[in-house]
Design a protein around this nucleic acid. Structure first.
Length: 198
DNA sequence: TCATTAAAGTTAT
DNA sequence: ATAACTTTAATGA
């Protein structure tokens, strides 16, 4: 969790509910709120002209959405869309900054969170520029598993669909599927009733 | 080698 | 039921 829900509540945050597919903000819009997920999954994505989707990140419980843009006078370079049913705490920009003035120690938490997102971006940027689909998919999987306590092989169930993995790595679904099969043959992953274990 | 297209099977809502 | 996801196969860059 970036900031305790209690503090956000006292700062004037409201709880917003989103259904799958609902926009939390649109690309090109001005950032007006701080968002923090209470429950559910949210994606940051771009859609190209030809309809292809690039997912930049999938966020869940306790994570903030697009907070790096709040410190900048720029519009959102991506959409944010609810993937599942979501509860999100929303605090308007002014109150967010008043809160930080009141509790300056919160800056550290905000910085840590942003540092974490930046780290993720570094990893993804590097892995996704590989020409090998295996490297790209491994990038996401290794990153995700790094948060798990259990490190043994095949102990981690990848919480994404193949579609989402493809969109995260810039591959087409079919290639993602074929590559995952290949990884299974090479004992990198295990597939149990269509779920991927790494 | 990977993307694209098409077609069909499967799962989730 | 319908949409979303998964899979296979053929073809082309």
């Amino acid at each position: 969790m970036v900031i305790s829900e209690k503090i956000l509540d006292s700062a004037g945050a409201e709880i917003k509910e989103y259904s799958p597919g609902e926009f939390i903000f649109h690309e090109g819009a001005r950032p007006l709120y701080y968002y923090q997920i209470i429950k559910g999954k949210v994606k940051l994505n771009n859609r190209s002209e030809d309809g292809k989707e690039l997912i930049q990140n999938i966020l869940s419980e306790g994570q903030s959405i697009g907070d790096s843009l709040l410190f900048l006078d720029r519009s959102y370079p991506m959409d944010s869309i609810a993937i599942t049913e979501c509860s999100v705490l929303r605090l308007c920009k002014n109150n967010f900054f008043s809160m930080l003035r009141l509790y300056p120690n919160l800056y550290l938490d905000v910085c840590k969170a942003m540092s974490g997102y930046l780290y993720y971006q570094y990893i993804m940027m590097q892995k996704n520029s590989s020409t090998h689909p295996v490297d790209r998919l491994m990038g996401v999987m290794v990153y995700l598993k790094s948060f798990q306590k259990e490190k043994t092989p095949f102990s981690f169930k990848i919480p994404f669909t193949r579609q989402q993995l493809a969109s995260l790595t810039g591959l087409c679904v079919e290639t993602a599927i074929r590559t995952i099969k290949l990884m299974e043959k090479n004992n990198i992953v295990e597939i149990r009733n269509r779920k991927i274990f790494f």
